[in-house]
Simulated assay, not measured.
Amino acid sequence: MAKLPITTRRSINLLLDHAAQHLKVGDALPTEMRMTEIVESSRTAVRSALAHLVEHGLIAGMKQRYLLRKPKPSDYFNVAELHSATEQLQQVLMERIYERDLPPGAEFTEVELSRAAGVSTIAVREFLIGFSRNGLIEKTPRGSWRLCAFDTKFAEELGEVREMFELKAIERFATLPPDDPAFARLRELLARHEALGKGSAESHLEFPALDREFHTFLIGLLDNRFAENLNEAVSMVYHYHYQWDKRDELPRNQHAVQEHLAILRPLVRGDVPSAMAAMREHLHSSRSTMLSALHHRENSAHAY
Rank of each mutant, 00 (worst) to 15 (best):
Arg96Phe: 07
Thr175His: 13
Glu171Val: 03
Ala149Asn: 08
Gln88Pro: 01
Ile170Leu: 11
Phe131Glu: 10
Trp145Pro: 00
Leu128Ala: 08
Asp101Tyr: 11
Asp180Thr: 07
Ala184Gln: 13
Leu93Ser: 03
Thr140Ala: 02
Trp145Ser: 10
Pro177Ile: 01
Ala191Ile: 02
Ser114Glu: 05
Lys139Val: 04
Trp145Asn: 07
Glu87Trp: 13
Gln91Ser: 14
Ala174Ser: 15
Arg187Val: 00
Phe183Cys: 10
Leu190Ala: 11
Ala106Lys: 08
Ala184Lys: 14
Arg142Cys: 00
Val124Met: 05
Asp180Cys: 04
Leu89Gln: 06
Ala184Leu: 12
Gly118Ile: 00
Glu194Gly: 06
Thr109Trp: 02
Val119Pro: 03
Val92Thr: 09
Arg142Val: 03
Glu95Cys: 08
Gly118Met: 04
Leu189Glu: 09
Pro141Met: 11
Glu95Val: 01
Gly118Gln: 06
Leu186Phe: 10
Thr86Asp: 13
Ser132Asp: 03
Leu113Trp: 09
Glu171Gly: 15
Thr175Tyr: 08
Gly143Ser: 10
Gln88Asp: 03
Arg187Asp: 07
Glu156Lys: 15
Cys148Glu: 15
Arg100Val: 04
Ala149Gln: 14
Arg100Lys: 14
Ser120Val: 08
Arg142Met: 02
Val92Leu: 00
Leu136Met: 14
Lys153Gly: 05
Trp145Met: 06
Ala184Trp: 10
Val111Asn: 12
Arg192Ala: 12
Arg172Gly: 07
Leu136Lys: 07
Leu167Val: 05
Gly118Cys: 10
Ala182Phe: 12
Val92Ser: 04
Glu95Ala: 06
Asp180Glu: 07
Leu186Arg: 11
Thr140Lys: 12
Ala184His: 14
Gln90Phe: 09
Pro103Ala: 02
Arg100Leu: 09
Leu190Asn: 11
Tyr98Trp: 14
Arg187Ser: 09
Glu95Ser: 04
Glu163Tyr: 09
Val161Glu: 12
Leu113Val: 02
Ser144Tyr: 08
Gln90Val: 04
Pro104Thr: 03
Arg185Met: 13
Ala174Arg: 11
Ile129Trp: 01
Ser84Met: 01
Trp145Lys: 10
Leu158Phe: 01
Arg146His: 05
Glu166Ile: 09
Ser114Asn: 06
Glu107Ile: 00
His193Asn: 10
Arg142Ser: 14
Leu93Ile: 00
Arg115Asn: 01
Leu128Asp: 07
Ala155Thr: 05
Leu147Ala: 03
Leu186Cys: 03
Asp179Leu: 07
Ala174Thr: 03
Ile129Lys: 08
Glu138Arg: 15
Ile97Gln: 12
Ala123Val: 03
Ala116Glu: 04
Arg142Ile: 01
Cys148Pro: 06
Ile97Thr: 06
Ala117Lys: 08
Thr140Tyr: 03
Glu107Thr: 15
Leu128His: 07
Asn134Met: 04
Val161Ile: 09
Ala155Arg: 04
Phe173Thr: 02
